[in-house]
Amino acid sequence: MRIGVITFPGSLDDRDAQRAVRIAGGEPVALWHGSHDLEGVDALILPGGFSYGDYLRCGAIASLSPIMTEVVAAANAGMPVLGICNGFQMLTEAGLLEGGLIRNDHGGFICRDQVLRIENASTDWTGEFSAGEEITIPLKNGEGGFIASDETLDRLEGEGRVVFRYVGVNPNGSLRDIAGISNERGNVVGLMPHPEHAVEPGFGPDTAAAMRSGVDGLGFFTSVIRRALVEA
């Protein structure tokens, strides 16, 4: 499976996302924001970082990039799209996901290994998990507070589109502890924490078994690859 990772000016975790795809058994394809060509990929990842220095609003200028025309069309046609951190912000700015991300309620940047609960294990990116399962992956952001109107929040909850919730501590003031959501179809998923940083023993979060051995993020990438194999 060929999975495109789009690099924007100021992307930081594009190479990590490519590596995660490779470790999961997929073929990463580097894509450029200024192009209109998705190069025939089967899925897309919008990586983390600080595109355009977070000018205007996080992800806002990147969401107007040339390639986003094709991203929106592909997402609406059902292609799996994962937005991580700044990528999540771009997806909300592009209107592919609802709600918005604002500055952390405590005003500070946060970097920690974060426990999440998988609330929906039937999206394109969470099929390898089970509902209610808890995972630990890194979280690092300054503007990760998820907000939406009560009406939108109720609808997201009612439709099972809250995909991840923070467990133990709410690190940024996100309403209803929401860490990530999906679109109606479940092919577009966005979250603030970083699964691509927890895919290889020796480089992930600490676990009870050993330091840096956590690979809970791998399931995101194997999920989308498995789904493609099943559908093929």
Partner: peptide, 9 residues
């Protein structure tokens, strides 16, 4: 559409 985001501003 661009200078503001109606969800947050």
């Amino acid at each position: 559409e661009i200078l503001s985001n109606g969800v947050i501003e």
